[in-house]
């Protein structure tokens, strides 16, 4: 099962990659919005973990652009923007779940599993 992490903070990306790979997922990392969009549209993925505040394109822009071509790809937003309006905005754009930073790593893994029915 392939997961793409779009996250500009390498430490957060490494932590998530480590946790998810331990659970048996194949994980790749994109460090900005442009690269994330390129990767997500260029290959088949089972899930996208998407940060909001990223260089080039932010997470909301990435989500808006990818939804036309990949309407069913499960997306979890992982963001420091944890206000109600941000969460609603993310969900309105088509995200399947929203996790606010700081986060519990185990919770991210659990939500990924739940979304993919692998738990």
């Amino acid at each position: 099962m392939k997961i793409l992490i779009a996250e500009d903070d390498p430490q957060v990306a490494r932590l998530l990659q480590f946790k998810l790979e331990k659970e048996g997922f194949a994980v790749s990392w994109a460090e900005d919005g442009e690269k994330a969009l390129e990767m997500v549209l260029g290959e088949d993925w089972d899930l996208l973990l998407l940060d909001v505040m990223m260089p080039v394109y932010d997470g909301f822009q990435v989500l808006r652009r990818l939804r036309d071509q990949k309407p069913t790809l499960p997306v979890i937003i992982l963001s420091a923007k944890g206000q109600e309006k941000d969460i609603l905005h993310g969900l309105e754009l088509g995200a399947n779940d929203y996790i606010a930073k700081p986060f519990r790593p185990a919770e991210v893994v659990a939500r990924v599993k739940r979304l993919k029915g692998a738990g």
Partner: peptide, 12 residues
């Protein structure tokens, strides 16, 4: 600190 600021719970 790079980890500390982003995670909470038991890991923190």
């Amino acid at each position: 600190y790079g980890y500390l600021k982003n995670i909470r719970g038991r890991e923190r």
